[in-house]
Amino acid sequence: MSEQYTADEMMTVAAARQLRDGTACFVGIGLPSTAANLARATHAPNLVLIYESGCLGAKPDRLPLSIGDGVLADTADAVVPVPEVFNYWLQPGRIDVGFLGAAQLDRYGNINTTVIGGDYTGPKVRLPGAGGAPEIAASCGEVVVIVRQSRRTFTERVDFVTSVGYGSGPDDRARLGLRGGGPRTVITDLGVLEADPVSRELTLTRLHPGVTVEQVHDATGWPLAVADDLSTGEPPTAEELTVLRALEATMRTPA
């Protein structure tokens, strides 16, 4: 019998499970950082966390609020200058997994975090912009996207391509010379989508417990492909929930 849990907790746990022990993971702040630290505290103790502030191999015992909190530098194997993070570590393809969020996402995993509505010079909503994401999306071995699923976010077309997924189809990454594998997996509060190995279109492959295919269709702004062998994932274990809640509690207490 499993405990009660929220859809966000299920999403974070599903994302953490995606990370394999011993791999190097480029972590953004927020949900990716929470999931990566959960993985490190449970099944992946040797997961290498890389923060764009220059902290390689950070082992925080509390969740940082920013990518540059002191706990990251204090616990890192190495703290390197920011140009080095991008030039020596990310660009040559040394990082296995890039973990990204999105304000908008399309069926080929292209991501917008720049502007929504209107046009570029007069947007309805101005978002923070690119940060490290375009090159993370280009150069990591693979990309995992973690994002809550809704029609507002899962759109037929993104208003701005901040980070490239599979462009407009299966051949675009090669044509553009992008050397990383692209967004293989998208983890949401409803389930898991994976890029089809041939068409590269995001395909619903797994539902979280209690979620229906109809709910996922309703939260997707395009006719969503569904895998023939669609499965239902395992709910969070008691251990996963205990560790996740303890991690999240560290954000609410002073250092």
């Binding site: 764009e52 920011v82 140009p83 993070v85 991008f86 030039n87 990310l90 660009q91 720049t114 570029y120 690119a130 940060g131 490290g132 994401a133 375009p134 090159e135 280009a138 150069s139 701005f160 391509v161 901040t162 980070s163 490239v164 462009g167 675009d172 553009l176 010379g177 992008l178 050397r179």
Partner: peptide
């Protein structure tokens, strides 16, 4: 992007007119 900005400072510090990187490709930037 961060990679672009970091490299722009590196070029500036190095007395070069520009920096080269694998970046921005395929984006709307």
């Amino acid at each position: 992007s961060h990679a672009g900005m970091a490299n722009r400072y590196v070029a500036g510090a190095s007395g070069l007119p520009f920096a080269v990187l694998r970046g921005y490709t395929g984006t709307d930037l």
